[in-house]
Design a protein around this nucleic acid. Sequence first.
DNA 1: AGCTAACTGAAATGCACGTTCCAGTTGATT
DNA 2: AATCAACTGGAACGTGCATTTCAGTTAGCT
Lengths: 190, 190
Amino acid sequence: MSTPEENPRGRRADAVRNRQLALHAATQLLAEPGGTLTVEAIAKKAGLGAATVVRAFGGKEALLDAAVAGLLAPLVERARQLLEQTAPEQALRTFLAELIAFQSAHHAISRQLDGLEAPATTALRQQLAEAMEEMIVGARRDGAIRTDLDTAVLVTLVGRTAFAIAQDQPASEGIVHAYLAVLMDGLRPQ
Amino acid sequence: MSTPEENPRGRRADAVRNRQLALHAATQLLAEPGGTLTVEAIAKKAGLGAATVVRAFGGKEALLDAAVAGLLAPLVERARQLLEQTAPEQALRTFLAELIAFQSAHHAISRQLDGLEAPATTALRQQLAEAMEEMIVGARRDGAIRTDLDTAVLVTLVGRTAFAIAQDQPASEGIVHAYLAVLMDGLRPQ
DNA sequence: AGCTAACTGAAATGCACGTTCCAGTTGATT
DNA sequence: AATCAACTGGAACGTGCATTTCAGTTAGCT
């Protein structure tokens, strides 16, 4: 449906189907808190042999990269949508809440992305950072955000702390609300 | 010098010495960014065999627990000192800056503490949380902190975000300064 | 000094993985 | 229907790790 290299040419139909089964299984496991993200677990969930799962992507890393990228892409889309439809400050607040909810639901992601060679994921994270930077720049233009702190630093700050809040399992409404309140108030011109 | 169970009785002198060598080596490795925290690496650094290192503590987990606890204890001490000597709000701000510097210097700790059964460390983290709660409660009493958010939630919020900022490697002065500015301003009554 | 239980560390063991092999199966093409 | 390259998955393999074994060493006691 969306990934571009789904059927690179001359691939047999069963191979394509199995590739998607593996991807789907990996994606599901990313959402499970105690999920064992081993190749074997993924294969079992997909109803395939471990070898097939590995081969479909050329390695475990590539599979996880694809799975995470599949999850991240809609998030980037959403950020851009908010940028178009909403005032920057409100967009930032809304997006942060959704970002935390997302990370909280897929908290296995962070652990996996630690030392991973993941081109697709890295690119998407870059895009996410850029969207957040746009929000911050826009909000600052509206006078909603303090000007005594560097934009790039603020992007890092917001990204990292939002991530940290999502580590709370499950991210309770209380902590998310408190975070957004403290952060947004702290970001305002004093 | 400080750990209570250094020489539990009837232990041979070389065993006691080796135990401390292992602990010291593990502590050093905790501060190295790319440090391989394997038993073998610790043993090599200590100039011992791997078996000796493991046996001295009854397992790798216990060794890491002891090493991390040794690092955390002075931090708890410092928090209490600040509570006695400084006004709560200032104590909180100072302590957070030091906490971030500490975590940044020993960022291997977090990774190790993930799924670790670590009684000593857990107890110290609890004490750290209690000290921070005292700071927050005190600052609130002084009218320096908003009252519309639950104290326990604020402790979690502050702890998690401080931790997140320390993940920046190396934690630049810029981000630490921005974090403290945004956080402390956000915490103030609006 | 001599004795012995405590201690040591190189090597063996066990375990959890990801990856690769290969004999068998299956989709596609004629 | 026949052919065969693509594909499959159970089993073998390689790696990186913590832990245990055991023959040798040493601290501490007499």
